[in-house]
């Protein structure tokens, strides 16, 4: 196996373990902490998927991926913080009109679009450059014709 598959192998095994860890954390009452472990799991999936030929562009890692990760870690910590602060009582102030705890869900929600979605669009060439797609199509054409010469069907 080449370098990329080995790298993703480690990442995929860790994400599998993290799925189990998150589930067990919920079983034993550590659901709030489990949320943050799940963000690490999502981060690893993003890294595994964003790689191109086994390598991840550093700019793409910083924005959109890591920016989203930091935003969510901070936002959901604040969701919990303000929830604890006002649990059982009416909030004494609002943020953006919302209960301060839900306001951070709102910020995480819009923020995920401003980081992941917008960053993905702005840095699309880092994710899949035209020349890599063209090279891929040429490679598939070549492999297909070699395979057809060998009498193998693709269906």
């Amino acid at each position: 196996m080449n370098e990329s598959s080995n790298n993703n192998g480690v990442l995929v095994v860790i994400t599998g373990i993290l799925w189990v860890v998150v589930t067990l954390m919920a079983w034993f009452g550590y659901w709030f902490q489990g949320i943050f472990v799940s963000f690490v799991m999502m981060l690893l999936y993003l890294i595994a998927g964003a790689k191109l030929h086994g390598k991840l562009d550093k700019t793409f890692l910083i924005y959109p991926i890591f920016s989203w990760f930091v935003l969510w870690m901070v936002s959901f910590w604040l969701v919990g913080h303000y929830s604890d602060m006002f649990r059982g009582n009416a909030p004494t102030f609002t943020i953006l009109g919302f209960h301060p705890s839900f306001a951070w869900v709102f910020i995480a929600w819009v923020g995920s679009v401003l980081t992941l979605t917008l960053g993905f669009y702005l840095l699309r060439d880092k994710w899949l450059p035209q020349e890599d797609w063209d090279a891929y199509q040429a490679k598939i054409q070549q492999l297909n014709s070699e395979r057809n010469k060998g009498g193998k069907s693709y269906e």
């Binding site: 999936y45 993003l46 595994a48 998927g49 839900f102 929600w109 995920s112 979605t117 993905f120």
Partner: peptide, 20 residues
């Protein structure tokens, strides 16, 4: 209402698996 978080999930899905 945590369901609204799906809005960012589209890009997440495409980054992870879209090109493959």
């Amino acid at each position: 209402n945590l369901w609204i978080l799906s809005s960012g999930g589209f890009a997440m899905s495409y980054i992870i698996l879209g090109k493959k």
